[in-house]
Design a protein around this nucleic acid. Sequence first.
DNA 1: TCAACGGCTCAATAGATGTTGAGATAACAG
DNA 2: CTGTTATCTCAACATCTATTGAGCCGTTGA
Lengths: 120, 120
Amino acid sequence: MDEPSALAAFAALSQETRLRIVRTLVRAGPDGMPAGALGEAIGGATSSRLSFHLTHLEQAGLVISRRDGRFIIYAAVLPALSGLIAFLMRDCCQGHPDICAPAVAALACSCEPEKDDANA
Amino acid sequence: MDEPSALAAFAALSQETRLRIVRTLVRAGPDGMPAGALGEAIGGATSSRLSFHLTHLEQAGLVISRRDGRFIIYAAVLPALSGLIAFLMRDCCQGHPDICAPAVAALACSCEPEKDDANA
DNA sequence: TCAACGGCTCAATAGATGTTGAGATAACAG
DNA sequence: CTGTTATCTCAACATCTATTGAGCCGTTGA
């Protein structure tokens, strides 16, 4: 993750429609979901607007697309998201992990939606 | 962390000068550094430009300021940064940690300044 | 082949954003 | 009190960005 990539990613995430798209795709998991369903999930997005934002997100490397019949399936790119924050937090504590430990711990919790379901 | 806050934070980070400010402050640690030194560290920022961006970052909750004599010291707000990615990754694996484990692991490594940073 | 459907592309418009330069404010030293 | 340093404020301008609506492309099934 270099500076231009990070800038592009943050810019992509700084827009309401795009942020909702990414969050919806994160929840959708690795299988992703088609553009149309995405539009319904986030609400009030015309075909053209949705396409514009999806293209923007794909160019920023935050989502990927694949065609399945007449649908186009989009999915979130999790490594891009984590790489983003890694870029931001790099050298955050200069060898003093106690400084940033709370921050890192908060991140790990985002994987556990309250239910302590075991591994898979 | 709610959606409007996250949008403001991502917008704040989507600008080259501001991203550099935040990263410089993250490296500077909890003690922060004065605006002038910050300007020299990131290069080519006039007083007015720097102030504009610092105000923007402070309103987004990513940095805080305090006056020390005739200096104004700025420092990064680490919880805001981690809260940001937690908001983004929430429910990322729906109870299947193996999906997002690599992403989370990448974040934890950002505390170790072992790898050489080739930022642009 | 055709029509229906899902999604994309394009150009124009309106709104948001960053930069600049001059000036103002606050604190310190003499 | 005066000058200097450090930083902020303000208004104008140039630039970038999002939205809209019309139209196009590819896939499917009869």
